[in-house]
């Protein structure tokens, strides 16, 4: 079993870790860095619960090897602090059990940053990659749209 040293920059902190080349980014974040916010839901790229940002792009961390993420800026849910999208999720009751929430939030956060003018089609294209089993999605839609609308107010 070959292990290697990987330099990861997570939430603006750098970490040097030793991992198997086959270890996924999700596994390393959770089991080596204790960042358990990203959740395993399928380990197959289907559910989106493990979504993190790599180079500002939402990535399913179960589908990326840790070595592929080396030296790229990574943002996990633990790196979001009192952002408008987090507040909107709370205000709009956009989660219940909370298990899909980190993935949804990361994805929605990137969406609102990259597409402040997102139309319904763009919102769907982004968010259909994540599964929520508790809410009706209507609450999540309201949360995302409330943040997009506020961005416009500020413009």
């Amino acid at each position: 079993m070959i292990k290697c040293e990987i330099l990861l920059t997570v939430n603006e902190e750098s970490h040097s870790i030793i991992a198997r080349q086959a270890d996924t980014l999700l596994f390393v974040l959770r089991n080596q860095l204790g960042l358990t916010g990203a959740k395993p839901g399928c380990l197959n790229g289907d559910c989106g619960a493990c979504t993190v940002l790599v180079d500002k792009t939402p990535i399913k961390s179960c589908m990326m090897l840790a070595i592929e993420a080396a030296e790229k800026p990574i943002t996990t849910i633990e790196g979001l602090c009192d952002t408008p999208i987090q507040r909107a999720f709370i205000e709009q009751f956009a989660f219940q059990c909370g298990y899909c929430t980190p993935g949804f939030l990361i994805n929605a956060y990137a969406l609102t940053k990259q597409h402040p003018d997102a139309d319904d089609e763009t919102i769907q294209e982004w968010l259909e990659s994540n599964i929520c089993r508790c809410t009706s999605y209507q609450e999540i839609e309201q949360a995302v749209k409330s943040v997009l609308a506020k961005k416009h107010e500020n413009d």
């Binding site: 839901g41 319904d120 968010l127 994540n130 599964i131 929520c132 009706s136 999605y137 999540i140 839609e141």
Partner: peptide, 12 residues
């Protein structure tokens, strides 16, 4: 979950 496919965002 790829072949057993619950409702996703936008299909609601």
């Amino acid at each position: 979950l790829r072949t057993y496919r619950p409702i996703r965002f936008g299909e609601h």
